[in-house]
């Protein structure tokens, strides 16, 4: 029997990565069926991953693009002279 610790620390990542062996995946799923805290853990773990992605920065601000362009043109001109 796998414990909550086994599930969370050792199996969960590969399970979501779909690289866990069939046998271990079945053990994990059997555990989830009877363990509400681990179900809550799995759901919030997945949600955390989604939120991290949603917190990603928007595209580079236009002013920064303009400064970058100016900076590079200056440096490249220096490099050629």
């Amino acid at each position: 029997m796998v414990t909550c610790k086994d599930v969370i620390m050792d199996l969960l990542f590969d399970y979501l990565d779909q690289t866990l062996s069939g046998e271990l995946a079945a053990e994990l799923e059997a555990h989830l069926k009877i363990c509400a805290p681990c179900r809550a853990y799995l759901a919030t773990y997945q949600k955390t991953r989604d939120l991290a992605a949603a917190a990603s920065r928007p595209p580079m601000p236009e002013e920064m693009k303009a400064r970058l362009r100016e900076f590079l043109l200056k440096k490249l001109a220096e490099g050629r002279s």
Binding site: T3, C4, A36, R39, A40, T44, Q46, K47, L51, A54
Partner: peptide, 30 residues
């Protein structure tokens, strides 16, 4: 990282262990 008891159960109050905020709408979460 999560903490565990010697028997392999996760440590914490029942409310903490059962807390599932994954269905909270993104409108609120973000």
């Amino acid at each position: 990282l999560p903490q565990f008891l010697a028997d392999g159960h996760r440590q914490g109050t029942l409310a903490w262990l059962m807390a599932d905020w994954s269905q909270t709408p993104d409108k609120y979460l973000l």
